[in-house]
Every structure is written in structure tokens, then in C-alpha cells.
Computed example of a mutant assay.
Amino acid sequence: MRKLSANIAQLVAMRAAAGPTMEASQPGRLREVESFGTNPGALKAKCYIPAQIAQKPALVVILHGCTQTADGYDHGAGWSQLADDHGFILLFPEQQRSNNPNLCFNWFSRADNVRDRGETLSIRQMIETMIDAHGIDTSRIFITGLSAGGAMTSILLASYPELFAGGAIIAGLPFGAASNVQQALEAMRAPDTLSGDQLGDRVRSASDHTGPWPRVAIWHGAADQTVKSSNADAILAQWLSVHELDEAPNSTEDIAGHRYRIWHDAKGRALIEDYRIADMGHGTPLATTGNDACGTPMPHMLEAGISSTRRIAASWGLLNDQTVVQRPKPINRATAETPNSLSTTKAGLETLSSAKPARAAANKGSVQKIIEDALRSAGLMR
């Protein structure tokens, strides 16, 4: 078994390689969602509601990476810039340092990475609160995330496939990649050597879903040394199996020097897209010049001559929305219904399972204490 000291050394090396963090104040455009159910994962929630929204707005859920904040990720990726132009609404779940000292979503924890538990359930509750408060079109809910946020995107797509029309996984990992810190570090270097059907079975067994599956886009830097691009291969194999598609794509293109492949269903609808960004390391691809300019380069937000934000939004049909001058009703902090009280006819979702108001200390206590003590010793946590 790999020693804890070796794991901590790996974390130290990863932190050093990551360079400056994005915790410093960025020009914040987001506002906090103060109440969204029982919140068993003890996360924060922020949102962006543009001044003009579509008549029946779409919702995009955006998950930041390690060392990042919701405001910092939005500033880097430029999502609120597109929301202003096209009238869709944004939700940004945000990790707290008390949950993870590096602000990573806990995608490797069994307390958080399965349906109706911990952080996964908290994010679902946030989404249902946004549906209730802002009249979201429940057929147009999408999710994307970077790195740990990308891994959590895989988890949300597998755990709640009935909730999402599509997802985009950026520098992430396949669903079921890890259940503890050691497995997480090993998976980041090299995913399990499983067949596509074995990987697909992990998704199929994550819920009792029998309906259509969400479409998936995969974005990964070919030179990523933090989360190796073999993880993108595993994500692709996993979702090709889920969608019952052949390995050969319907088309392959070169876009700005990057390989793009796409898989369609029998009716010609795109189900899986795969972008491999040449010579790019660990981060979200940006284009900051030209007509597609969107976002701001910073650590892990990398100029690549291609805007993942714009291309993801376009593939989901979000850039076609007609906006209207309409202020959405605000969330009433005192009287807003909790997600547990939403009816299936109103939200288009089945009733939430019951959950305790707070995360049980036993879920994370002993393991979290060991990791935090080691990180303090390594100088990674105050």
C-alpha cells in the first residue's frame, strides 16, 4: 500500500506545479444563494442572473477546480459574459476550505460521490432551488467543470442523468475513478484499465435511470501532466458504451490546430464530442483574441486559440436564445420552499430523498483529520 507520506509528497508536488492560486479577489459578478435545502455537503452556492433573461431560461451549472473560487473561475472562463449576451442563468457551487483545504470538490470521497449523498446531493438541491426561483426550462439544464470540478461533473451526470441535458468535462476523470485519496492520485496518473462496457456499467449502475442519457463533451490538454489525458480516453470509452455508439467517430476535424471528433445518434444528433488541445497543460482552454474572445488567462485558465466556453455554450444551443427585458423574481430567503418540498409537476423531477441537515462527522472525520494534519505539516493549510 502506498504510504500516506508518499501521497502527501505527491500533493505537495501538485500544489507547487499548480503555481499561484485564484483565491485572491477577482472582480466578482456573482451573488450568493443563501438557502437551498438541507445542504448535506456543506457547500456554498453562487449564481449569476443577467439583466435580460430568456423567456424560459436555460441553467448552466459550473464547477471550479482545486485552488479556485466560483468568482475566479467565472472571471477566467467568461461564462457570465455569455449569459449577459444570451439570457441564460448560471449556478456556481463553491467548495469551502473546511471541507477540503485545497478547495477541491471531494470527488474521491464515498460520502460525496454517489447519488443523494454529501456534495452531490447539495448540488442537486441548489439546482432545484434555481428551478423554483427562476422558472428554469428543466429540459435545458447543463453542467461543466474543470479538474476536480470535471470529475464531479462526471459524477453528477452519472448520478442524476434525468436532470441534465448535457455536460462538458474539462481535464476531468471518468465516473467511478476513485473512492479515496490514494486511488484519486493513482487515477490522475493513469485510470483503471477497464473495457468501455465495464466503465459504462459504472454509470448504468449509479441510478435506476431508464430514459435518454445526457450528451457529453470532453476537453483535455494533450500535455496535461496533472490529470493525464488517458483519463479523457476513459471518459470517452465510458460514454460511448452508455450511448451504445461505435468507437469510430462520425467525423474528425482540425480546429485551430486541435483535434475534434464527434459521434451522432441514428438521427444525426450529436451525443459525444471530444476535443484534444494540442500542447496544452492542465486547465480550461480559452481564446482571448478575435471574434470568439471570451475570458481572461490566469492559472489553469489557458490561452489555446479556442474558446471552450463559447463552443460548449454553442453546442448546447445557448447562443441562439432571444432575450427579453425581464428581471427574474429574487429568491425569497425567508419563505422560499426547500427542494424537498418541490412537487414533481412543478420541477419536473422526482422528490428528493430525505437527508440529514448537516454532514455527519463520521463521514469525513478521521480521514479528513489525518489529511489536514499532514497538509498543515506540509505547509499547505493554515
Score class of each variant (00 low, 15 high):
265 D>N: 15
132 D>Y: 09
242 V>T: 00
160 Y>I: 00
96 Q>I: 12
78 G>V: 01
337 E>S: 13
114 V>F: 07
130 M>H: 02
190 A>F: 13
75 H>M: 08
286 L>H: 02
3 K>Y: 11
225 Q>A: 15
210 T>E: 11
156 L>V: 02
116 D>K: 07
283 G>H: 02
268 G>R: 10
321 D>H: 15
165 A>P: 06
80 S>P: 01
189 R>F: 07
149 G>Q: 01
341 S>I: 05
3 K>R: 14
74 D>A: 06
220 H>G: 00
26 Q>W: 10
355 A>H: 05
21 T>C: 10
130 M>K: 01
71 D>S: 13
301 M>E: 07
30 L>N: 03
109 S>C: 10
131 I>M: 03
44 K>M: 14
290 G>H: 08
228 K>F: 12
189 R>W: 04
25 S>E: 14
183 Q>Y: 01
91 L>C: 02
227 V>A: 03
315 S>I: 07
68 Q>R: 08
265 D>R: 07
266 A>H: 14
54 A>E: 09
132 D>K: 09
306 I>G: 04
278 A>V: 08
192 D>E: 14
254 D>K: 10
249 P>V: 00
348 G>L: 07
64 H>D: 02
16 A>Y: 09
164 F>R: 00
317 G>N: 08
189 R>M: 11
237 A>M: 11
64 H>Y: 03
365 G>I: 00
302 L>H: 01
9 A>E: 14
248 A>G: 01
286 L>M: 03
331 I>R: 13
330 P>S: 01
45 A>S: 12
205 S>P: 00
238 Q>Y: 00
194 L>G: 02
1 M>P: 11
71 D>P: 07
95 Q>N: 04
257 G>K: 10
17 A>C: 04
120 T>C: 13
2 R>G: 03
221 G>K: 04
269 R>H: 12
88 F>N: 04
351 T>W: 04
273 E>L: 04
120 T>Y: 03
250 N>L: 09
178 A>W: 08
293 A>Y: 06
16 A>P: 01
322 Q>P: 08
347 A>R: 06
47 C>F: 13
31 R>E: 12
63 L>P: 00
167 G>T: 07
170 I>G: 02
42 A>W: 10
267 K>G: 11
227 V>Q: 05
167 G>L: 06
321 D>S: 13
351 T>Y: 04
36 F>N: 02
374 A>I: 04
307 S>V: 08
372 E>I: 12
138 T>F: 06
187 A>K: 06
275 Y>R: 04
60 V>P: 02
285 P>R: 05
190 A>T: 15
96 Q>P: 05
47 C>N: 11
315 S>D: 07
377 S>F: 09
376 R>V: 08
